[in-house]
Nucleic acid binder design. Structure first.
Lengths: 151, 151
DNA sequence: TATTGTTATACTCTATAACTATA
DNA sequence: TATAGTTATAGAGTATAACAATA
């Protein structure tokens, strides 16, 4: 055999990593949900939903953005009423970003859209294959060659 | 059960789609290969390796970039001797972008790096799991919710 | 009339720098 | 001394507009 499993995965990975892939997908997920919800603010919303109330610095580390970028995106979401700023009672320097009820509803909607798009793409798969893929993908992302080397 | 396979996959997908993930990975793959080879020109090189000689417009469609962007990235690669421009004998409007031998060598190197990184991440996996994952990922990317709706 | 490559332009998004406040 | 949030700035990268050439 002239090809390794690594090569096969490498080839398949390309389209997933493209900027246009993410832009197109995130555009679909956020369409019609208001001016403040787009491919830029979506990661902030979904990150906050995952972590709970979080400082801009912590959230930036979680989703791979500088805290200044998080601040600016959070401004837009705050103006739209999807996010609130709260003082952090345990750290006087920090300001916690927290989803509002409207913000939570937006996240539920986008998550459902994404899950539905995936389920639809996998509709013709044997259920066992789909479940196996979900399990293996999760492990791959956790183990994967994607995590930055820790300094 | 309160979670669908689609939701599981949606959750795992997040980190893969991040800009910082792609930037970090492509930086690792292209490190030390010369000034012209970086996260921006890598997709041009690897796209050309996949398609063979191609016009900027076609290559742009293949890798999800505007032809003006492809032109500018190709300029850098041409100056570095990794790519050549050739007239297209079948279409007087087009200019074919083609990898040079040096360009091919760079692609081989980056492909090996990526495959090695993946193999290393999967080193502890049962080989059957790794092979199953490669097969399912390929199918997922082909079937997936990522392909733009064709106009 | 549509598409090609290229250049110039304007726009968007990002991180860096700098500031003040708190640990 | 280090880290928080925020703002201003500058830098990088992108697509849009426009051009001449070809289909």
């Amino acid at each position: 055999m002239n090809h390794s499993t690594g090569h096969d995965i490498a080839d398949a990975l390309g389209p997933l990593l493209r900027r246009s892939t993410r832009a197109h997908l995130y555009h679909r997920l956020t369409e019609g949900l208001g001016e403040a919800v787009d491919d830029l603010t979506y990661p902030v919303l979904s990150g906050l939903a995952r972590t709970g109330p979080s400082s801009a610095a912590d959230l930036g580390r979680e989703i791979g953005l500088d805290r200044t970028t998080v601040t600016r995106r959070a401004d837009r979401l705050e103006r739209a009423g999807l996010l609130q700023r709260q003082p952090d009672s345990t750290d006087g320097r920090a300001t916690l970003l927290a989803l509002t009820d409207d913000g939570h509803r937006i996240v539920v909607t986008t998550r459902q859209r994404l899950a539905a798009a995936i389920d639809s793409a996998l509709a013709t798969w044997p259920p066992a294959d789909a479940q196996a893929f979900a399990r293996l993908l999760r492990r791959f992302v956790d183990d994967g060659p994607f995590t930055p080397d820790h300094d």
